[in-house]
């Protein structure tokens, strides 16, 4: 029985890891071995050419062919800028609102909280139609500012709910004691409460960052060449070309997914909380 269970567990883990393993191995294969049948799992010749092709594409044919920088590095930079700025904003606003919602009597508090949550329930595709029109009118289409604002909003409800959850866990008595010692409410928040929630803030930031990094619909519709992020760039390469070179796609995907895997590992203790909006505490 025990052996049977062990084999079953190994099998499930293997099925789960295989697609990621396949992405890693494909990214190091030559074009011929990518399409070899039966597939080669370990016994292939390792090449780094795919990774080079992610950053430098070939322009021109025959003897005029030369390497020129591809759009990928720019997309990587765009993704990083938009992710970092929007995460900072979302977490800052979320921490402040989360504290206020956790500590103060606010008229219509639960309605407000559920209004905030409901903005996240909306399908991105429903929001993006009117936002597209608005951004065109306001000149925010295809700008960093537009994308940063949008991703901030996209993560704001999550950030508020997560931070309220973390704040709820800190006893009210902490700041009451501080205020007895002559701290103002604001000082008590900044010097007593905030340091207690650093771990929570970090976890919230990681989740916000991952969600902004992965986002596709808004980026597809609201960005063009200058601010295009990685997801629409990779998608464009696959969906718009015939005879896709899967080695290059795997290499680009791997570069893109690696940070997410690393950060997921770092917040693994908060995963449950993160995927349920802080409503279930792990």
């Amino acid at each position: 029985m025990k052996i049977f269970l062990t084999i079953l567990i190994i099998l499930i883990v293997a099925i789960y890891i295989f697609p990621l393993f396949w992405m890693v191995s494909s990214s190091f294969k030559t074009r011929v071995e990518i399409f070899s049948m039966p597939p080669k799992f370990f016994n292939f010749e390792v090449t780094f050419k795919n990774f080079r092709r992610v950053f430098y594409k070939i322009a021109g044919w025959g003897k005029f062919a030369k390497e020129v920088p591809s759009e990928f590095p720019r997309a990587l930079l765009n993704s990083s800028i938009i992710t970092i700025l929007s995460t900072l904003l979302a977490v800052t606003l979320g921490t402040l609102s989360g504290y206020a919602f956790s500590r103060f009597e606010i008229p219509g508090k639960s309605d407000l909280l559920f209004f905030i949550l409901s903005t996240r329930m909306l399908p991105a595709m429903v929001i993006v139609v009117p936002v597209f029109i608005m951004y065109k009118t306001l000149g925010l289409f295809n700008t960093y500012l537009g994308m940063v604002i949008l991703y901030t909003v996209f993560n704001l409800s999550f950030s508020v709910w997560m931070m309220k959850g973390f704040m709820d866990e800190i006893p009210k008595e902490y700041e009451e004691a501080a205020m007895c010692d002559g701290y103002t409410r604001f000082q008590a928040f900044r010097k007593i409460i905030l340091p207690q929630t650093y771990a929570g803030i970090a976890a919230t930031a990681v989740f916000c960052g991952i969600m902004a990094w992965n986002e596709y619909v808004f980026a597809l519709i609201l960005t063009s060449e200058e601010t295009k992020t990685v997801p629409p760039t990779i998608a464009g390469n696959v969906l718009k070309t015939t005879g896709v070179n899967w080695g290059e796609v795997a290499a680009a995907s791997l570069i893109f997914l690696a940070p997410v895997l690393i950060f997921t590992f770092l917040v693994r203790k908060h995963l449950l909380r993160g995927v349920t909006f802080g409503t279930i505490k792990g």
Partner: peptide, 26 residues
């Protein structure tokens, strides 16, 4: 953590790469 990680990945990239895994010929 490894088993749980797929849900954190970018759905578009996951969809694109599975095209290769599910391809009829190779």
């Amino acid at each position: 953590t490894l088993v749980l990680s797929p849900m954190m990945l970018s759905p578009i990239v996951v969809g694109l790469f599975w095209r290769y895994i599910l391809d009829a010929n190779w």
